[in-house]
Design a protein around this nucleic acid. Structure first.
Lengths: 227, 227
DNA sequence: TCAAGTTATATTGTCGACAATTTTTATTTA
DNA sequence: TAAATAAAAATTGTCGACAATATAACTTGA
């Protein structure tokens, strides 16, 4: 069962880490399941060395937990951890919005308004259907994060936090959110950024994420009825 | 040249990672220097396997940068990166202070007031000398971070960010800060937490860190005159 | 003398095998 | 039968050796 296209990285370890990350985020490797080094090594056709390096990286990304002499397990999603992650996201993306208000160039602001217009058109055409996961809702947030210009902040949010955030989304299918409400909030945030109102942009972004967190919490409470 | 006490962890890799981390933060391994796997392996008396794992972990902590087929280098401290790190710290510790306002138990508030009293007494007795690095100024911040109750936030701040923050302090000896001013700010923050004023606690903590950032920036500008 | 190309050296990446530890299975005993 | 103990199997941790790549040293030609 070869896993999708194996985009050749310069080193096996990076390649494996990338593939494993996707497999976990998309649920191909289920939550809480054990990561067997021997098994995965055979499956990916590599030795245990690079595989172990990949696992150590995944541990750094917070996708697996490792205990000495026992091995690695995929993290288990639960509401409390999700709320913790979103609290961090609220703080960090709020800061990103503030910084973006100072640094985002005019052209990018214009492009983002266009992006929101496209979202609007999509909703009008598809009877308020959610946009497709990838590149839709996320895109707006990622663009603002990048506009912050803070490379460490960008790395942490896009490479670490968003991995587990996407994982939550994948595992609670529909987050039952009103897309038009989200779009309105996006527009308000962008307005604040366009006007260089850092305080307001941060406030609005934090509220926006806080609301998303509450909605995701409700969705999880309904979805994950404990067996 | 064996490096301090080698506290035996359950696995060599963890042990080495810990020792390397300390060596880098304390400057025993200088900034920008290359990490030679063979050399370090011989020095610590282990094989290259566990050492590589340790290096991968350090990369995750942001203490070294790795490039494929070339190796790892200790990060180089500069003002821009420091400002980026402190911007993240501002956002995250601000959130920690807010959460602490809701969750910190009464007894811990009392203990923290005692801690500040001790700091005050220390300053009175030692003619405004800075407290010793370890456990002094940091302690207050760490206690608030822990009081947030957000385990992910705690891990990120204490294990990742504070590693490089301590590195900055180590490499710019004296940060030329008025300790009494810092103490006053600490007290104001604690007051807000004691009164469960989350908004205020966050605001004060962010200002406090922002000021520290500015001062450290000035110190670095004087210290690091480019050759 | 300098530049480009070539060889040699050193360093990292990968592999398979062995040691140490944990988990499972089997056995014994109350 | 159940708990405790002991043996066996499986899994992780560690090691040394080889392959692939990058860096250094050297040669050659203009």
């Amino acid at each position: 069962m070869s896993n999708l296209v194996s985009v050749k990285f310069s080193t096996l370890s990076e390649d494996i880490a990338q593939q494993l990350s996707r497999a976990i985020v998309q649920g191909h490797i289920p939550q809480g399941s054990k990561i067997s080094e021997a098994e995965l090594a055979k499956q990916y056709g590599v030795s245990r060395g690079p595989l172990r390096e990949a696992i150590v990286k995944l541990e750094g990304l917070g996708l697996v937990t490792r205990t000495a002499n026992v091995g690695a397990r995929v993290i288990e999603l639960n509401i409390d951890d999700m709320l913790e992650t979103f609290a961090m996201r609220e703080a960090l993306e709020g800061m990103a919005a503030r910084l973006a208000s100072e640094k985002m160039p005019e052209e990018e602001v214009t492009r983002l308004y266009h992006l929101l217009d496209e979202h609007q058109a999509y909703l009008d055409a598809n009877h308020d259907e959610h946009y497709v996961q990838q590149g839709g809702n996320d895109d707006f947030h990622l663009r603002i994060i990048h506009a912050s210009g803070n490379t460490k902040l960008i790395r942490l949010l896009t490479e670490e936090l968003y991995a587990v955030i996407r994982m939550y989304r994948h595992h609670t299918a529909d987050q039952r959110r009103d897309p038009r409400q989200a779009l309105r909030e996006h527009r308000a945030i962008l307005d604040a950024i366009a006007n260089h109102e850092g305080d307001l942009a941060e406030l609005l972004m934090r509220r926006h994420i806080s609301r998303a967190s509450q909605l995701l919490k409700q969705a999880m409470e309904q979805c994950l009825v404990k067996p």
